[in-house]
Design a protein around this nucleic acid. Sequence first.
DNA 1: GTCAAATAATTCGTACACCAATAATTGGTA
DNA 2: TACCAATTATTGGTGTACGAATTATTTGAC
Lengths: 175, 175
Amino acid sequence: MLDPSVPNALDLRVLTALRKIIRSVDLYSRELKNKSEVTAPQLICLLAIVRNGPMSATSVSREVFLSPSTIVGILDRLEIKGLVKRERSQKDRRIVMVSATPLGTTLVARAPSPIQDVLKRRLQELPLREQEDISRSLERVVELMEADHVEAAPILELGPIPQKTTQEDKGPQEF
Amino acid sequence: MLDPSVPNALDLRVLTALRKIIRSVDLYSRELKNKSEVTAPQLICLLAIVRNGPMSATSVSREVFLSPSTIVGILDRLEIKGLVKRERSQKDRRIVMVSATPLGTTLVARAPSPIQDVLKRRLQELPLREQEDISRSLERVVELMEADHVEAAPILELGPIPQKTTQEDKGPQEF
DNA sequence: GTCAAATAATTCGTACACCAATAATTGGTA
DNA sequence: TACCAATTATTGGTGTACGAATTATTTGAC
């Protein structure tokens, strides 16, 4: 299926592959919603909350690599479904502590994985060496993409979770 | 958060990488918008239209791997900006032919790549063999994700078959 | 020739996902 | 004390992205 004869279609191939992956992830989320009443982002957040115990919204945000404003909407939907509970902290009234309800904990226990089961399973079926290749390639792409706007995406693991440093908007980088 | 000592962290590595890539693509799209007035999805569609000449909306949809309903919104925004033109076909009045305006063609000529310039540039700097590795790995992931639910029949439980996956995040670290 | 199925585009509703701006607090400092 | 900067959550606005339902039109079967 790969035609090496085409000269520089490589970056297009990469872009197309990325877009297909993104689409695939989205489609799986909708599938998940039909099965377990929650979407992938919701499940991911709920998992983080169950695992860590009561935590602030900002902590959730950093934990799952999504912006705080995105988290608000997800928590809203989880709360409406009775899966999480929001409570203003007494010590610092700016903070909202989010915790899982019994219902939420139960759901987490039996929900499917937030990512393609198929992907996960098939990945594990591959020869270890190929698994390595894939991991490394993907991480390579991440590096290549991050190189430029470092402060844009909270990435880099290690240590405490990243946090974005917003200021610094300079005008110019290139493009 | 990721502990390299854990044996089968490979699938986690893959998922975390995918998640970061998706986020990075999204952030770049916003950056692109500030620079060239169009987002990445808009530019990708416009590129397809300029490259192929006048084409139906459905063709665009297939070309860029997005659903027709998504395309409608993107075309709306491109049309408002005067970059494309919609015309009902005479032969088959169900079809809407989309073509780029001179303005749209001009924009395409000087717009940055819809994919991170950095990524593109750096990708090209790598040894050809590594470029191939990356492309192949990404395409492999696409296969793994798609392989399964090509056409599952809605036989079990309620409703039509599920599908989900959203573009946004997929579960990162543990789950 | 006349309907029914198929096709094309669109609309509607849901859910992300982000940034910018805002409100409410808190902590530090003049 | 009064004020100001930082922190936290939220709101508002834009733009994807999808499936389901709708409308218009064409094609196919009879």
